[in-house]
Design a protein around this nucleic acid. Structure first.
Length: 561
RNA sequence: GCGGAAUUAGCUCAGCUGGAUAGAGCGUCGGUCUACGAAACCGAAGGUCGCAGGUUCGACUCCUGCAUUCCGCGCCA
């Protein structure tokens, strides 16, 4: 409805322009907003205040002229001027309820759009190295990244979800040594325990499985143990497979699925790393100093240059990272979005600097980044720091075990990524209003319940027939819910545009509140037949929108609870 | 010291590209079920939007400075 109103205002502006009351039209279309206060109408426009100066009129006088010039239409009931010069629109209620028909007709497609026009976008997220279980930070990344993927898909992009991990570096070596030590019967208190070894009890599980010659299958690999304690290479491969499998199980329990797993080692095998280095060297972006090879990242805005090849040989992590992102570019992704922890923010400059230095035509600002801040976990009023399994951190699996998948996903995605997050386990467990997940899901379950009961007192097509009686939905609660439902498409579009899935979570809470208010204020099944049918249509639409919204967050919409 | 993020009600957090009297949940207080699901609803109290300037018709929002908290600042990833 906003575009229609903006068009009407534009027409009014053009009218004033032709009368000479205005010197020029504004650059952007007139801004239409939702007033906070319902007495200010359904929509408001600030254009009179913006243009008052150039029109040499007071904002209120200009507003009056504009209202005068608005073309005749059936959309608007009345317009008034308020405050310093706001133009407030009161919409004809019949136009509000029209959206109910749209929702029921479109079904799950309501709220989707085609901004992406089938273009390719990749979302890389989680990307945990296979050295231990996924922790809550990975969980936040998984929840946000997957939801971003869903939002982009809903707005017309073709999305690929990718998981990148290092299967060969120093940390993997530490992992292999730790497993080997456990297989030799040592524990972290032992004098020969590897320096920087991994201390979690899961290392013992891996060692035991290795000694038992088990076979493990992960999403991207399968391997059988050799059982030979001396074969560090075999241990390494086995350990990586074990931990990949464990992470996959966690991700599966979290309903997160990846399209592709990308190995850092493949960039060495394919020669992409060497090629990246030589391209950067040929372009004159590198220099040698103190026995190391450096990239002049200061050319691209970094505060100091960075080592690419260490004195002892071997590349630093960002070199394969640059090669990796070059590979993504060559794979044809118009957009790449990297969701990662904010503690990695310093890599952004380096990766972009490297990509820029390749002269491959990669635009500035590619790839895009969504960084999430840290998560702390509270339980029974105290911060939880330890998980017995992991040894040093709370795992994603811990959270899922404690509060379930839906609550975990909702809580991890419901806050702005840039905010530090406190995950309150007790709140996530609560079965009441305190808990937004259940509040929203309850609205859905209630809607389903009424629709189910309606079959006893009306025919199956009652909701559809209700579309002929939408004029019955004139109570404030019905209109509030209707207007709320109508906002869904722009919420989805905005959340996708800004890469902020928490907008959807906030919207759902509001929509659920509007649903509950309507539900409590008006009986549905005992209303007059036409009214009942109209209300059933509204309930059907609400159920659809809530289910679609929850799906964007990866949270289920239960039929009953 | 440098860079990034943050600072909004007792607590956890929203506040869209600057808009009208700053919102929600929890917590506190008070109401509503012989039930279309009370896992809900209705109402009340609760604020110097960290501080100080600036920009303008208008600032929680933009700019500058300061304070505080978190995260980075490795030839680890």
């Amino acid at each position: 409805m906003k575009p229609e109103l903006a068009a009407l205002m534009t027409a009014a502006l053009e009218q004033l322009l032709s009368e000479g009351a205005l010197a020029a039209l504004p650059d952007a279309p007139p801004q239409i907003d939702y007033p906070k206060d319902p007495t200010h109408g359904d929509f408001s426009c600030n254009v009179a205040m913006v243009l008052a100066k150039q029109a040499r009129l007071s904002p209120r006088d200009l507003a009056a002229k504009l209202i005068e010039a608005v073309p005749d239409n059936s959309l608007i009931d009345r317009i008034n001027i308020a405050g310093p010069g706001f133009i407030n629109f009161f919409i004809n209620p019949r136009h509000h309820t029209a959206v109910i028909r749209q929702i029921i007709t479109a079904g799950p497609d309501f709220g989707r759009c085609n901004t992406g026009q089938g273009r390719k976008v990749q979302v890389e997220f989680v990307s945990a190295n296979p050295t231990g279980p996924l922790h809550v930070g990975h969980g936040r990344g998984a929840a946000i990244g997957d939801s971003l993927g869903r939002l982009l898909a809903a707005t017309g992009w073709v999305v690929q979800r990718e998981f990148y991990y290092n299967d060969a570096g120093q940390q993997i070596q530490n992992l292999a040594l730790s497993v080997q030590a456990r297989a030799q019967g040592k524990d972290p208190s032992h004098a020969d325990w590897p320096k920087d070894g991994y201390q979690g009890t899961y290392i013992q599980d891996v060692a035991t499985a290795y000694l038992a010659n088990e076979t493990v299958e992960a999403a991207d690999r399968e391997i059988s143990a050799k059982g030979d304690v001396a074969d560090l290479e075999a241990i390494r491969e086995f350990a990586v497979a074990c931990l990949r499998r464990e992470q996959d199980q966690d991700l599966k329990a979290f309903a997160v699925v990846f399209d592709k797993y990308f190995l850092e080692s493949s960039l060495y095998d394919s020669g992409a790393v060497e090629e990246t280095v030589s391209t950067l060297a040929q372009a004159g972006h590198t220099f040698e100093e103190e026995g190391a090879l450096w990239l002049k990242t200061t050319t691209f805005g970094d505060d100091k240059d960075r080592v690419m090849r260490k004195r002892e040989g071997g590349y630093t992590y960002f070199v394969p990272d640059v090669a990796y992102h070059h590979d993504k570019w060559q794979r044809g992704f118009e957009r790449v979005i990297n969701e990662q922890g904010a503690d990695h923010h310093s890599t952004i400059t380096r990766v972009r600097a490297g990509l820029h230095g390749l002269n491959a035509g990669i635009p500035e600002g590619w790839p895009e980044y969504v960084l999430h801040q840290m998560v702390t976990v509270m339980r029974e009023g105290a911060e939880v720091k330890l998980s017995k399994r992991a040894g040093s951190y709370v795992t994603l699996r811990d959270l899922i075990d404690w509060v379930g998948r839906d609550a975990t996903r909702y809580f991890l995605v419901a806050r702005a990524p840039s905010s530090q997050l406190t995950f309150d386990v007790d709140l996530a467990l609560a079965r009441s209003n305190e808990n937004p997940v259940y509040y929203i899901q309850y609205a859905h379950a209630r809607a389903v319940s009424v629709l189910r009961k309606a079959e006893d007192v009306a025919d199956a097509a009652a909701a559809t027939e209700g579309l002929e009686h939408l004029d019955c939905l004139m109570e404030p609660e019905a209109l509030a819910l209707t207007i709320s439902l109508g906002r869904f498409p722009e919420v989805v579009a905005g959340a996708a545009e800004r890469l902020e899935p928490h907008d959807v979570a906030n919207y759902l809470r509001q929509a659920a509140a509007d649903f509950h208010s309507f539900y409590n204020a008006h009986n549905i099944l005992e209303a007059e037949p036409d009214t009942m049918r109209a209300r059933l249509a509204l309930i059907t639409a609400a159920k659809q929108v809530i289910a679609s919204g929850l799906d964007l967050l990866g949270v289920s919409a239960p039929e009953s609870m």
